[in-house]
């Protein structure tokens, strides 16, 4: 059972109750969560795990970790600190993190944020309230939304629901479910009446990023071995040619003995 969140942006009124509930859940001071909106352009930061973006006047959408099905950050973290759980959320292990910040480079939505002001900083991002979900509860943001813009459930069921929303009101919704296929699909999917590229959604349907990098990583050791064998081959060939040339001209001291020469 892989969970997800369905975001219906037509119901969002930018009240930001979800943002404040998220802050409360992660024990962030609410005043700080409000002020942190100004730190970065997209309103996310280490003390503000989700944000309501204004797409256009009257149209708002929630930006937070999309919990991709094939996450780039999971593939990128060199100590394996980020994992895709079978329940759906992409979760972070603060015990493993060394602070290299490669996950921040790897995410196509630019989600992971860093605690720059701390002396022992960690990476911060939404974890779909993994602990609450494990106890059978729903994420804090979904619980807090007063207008029903957020819905939590099994991803396949949510996809069906998204489709039926679009079919029932074709004049209202654009005929697209964001997150169904982009980057290999995400657990957080959107239906909307406006284009959502402002959240980082691409115009095309790109493949998942690990599918670009992982095949190359896996053949790297073999490339290394091939290079080593090739070098030995070149070296052997050249030495052999030198030896043969020396045998043909025995009276000329052309070559010193390279092996024992001083380094």
């Amino acid at each position: 059972m892989s969970y997800g969140i369905l975001v219906d942006t037509t119901k969002c009124t930018s009240c930001e109750e979800c943002v404040m509930a998220c802050a409360a859940e992660h024990q962030i001071d609410p005043q700080r969560a409000i002020k942190e909106k100004a730190i970065n352009k997209d309103g996310l930061s280490a003390y503000r795990l989700s944000n309501i973006a204004t797409i256009s006047p009257g149209h708002f959408a929630r930006k937070s970790c999309m919990h991709c099905l094939e996450p780039s950050c999971v593939s990128a973290c060199l100590v394996g600190g980020i994992t895709k759980s079978p329940e759906g959320p992409v979760i972070y292990d603060p015990e493993k993190c060394i602070g290299c910040r490669y996950c921040m480079i790897a995410c196509p939505f630019h989600i992971p944020r860093y605690e720059w002001d701390k002396n022992t900083p960690l990476m911060v991002k939404c974890d779909m309230c993994f602990e609450r979900i494990s106890q059978g509860n729903i994420p804090a943001c979904v619980d807090a939304c007063p207008n029903g813009a957020l819905k939590f459930g099994d991803r396949d069921t949510l996809l069906k629901e998204a489709n039926s929303k679009i079919q029932n009101q074709p004049d209202l919704y654009l005929n697209h479910i964001w997150g169904e296929k982009e980057f290999g699909g995400t657990s957080v999917i959107y239906v909307s009446d406006v284009e959502l590229s402002a959240l980082g959604w691409p115009k095309t349907n790109p493949k998942s990023i690990p599918s670009l990098t992982e095949p190359l990583v896996h053949i790297t050791p073999f490339i290394g071995m091939t290079v080593a064998v090739g070098l030995l081959g070149i070296n052997w060939t050249i030495k052999r040619r030198m030896k043969l040339a020396a045998q043909n001209t025995p009276d000329k001291q052309v070559f010193n003995n390279e092996e024992n020469s001083d380094d």
Binding site: S75, K96, C97
Partner: peptide, 22 residues
């Protein structure tokens, strides 16, 4: 790196899918 005292982590914690680990 944010946590210099954890520089030894990648020696024992591997993610072979990551180019940074490589």
């Amino acid at each position: 790196i944010g946590l210099p005292f954890r520089f030894w982590h990648p020696i024992f914690m591997w993610n072979i899918n990551s180019f940074l680990f490589e």
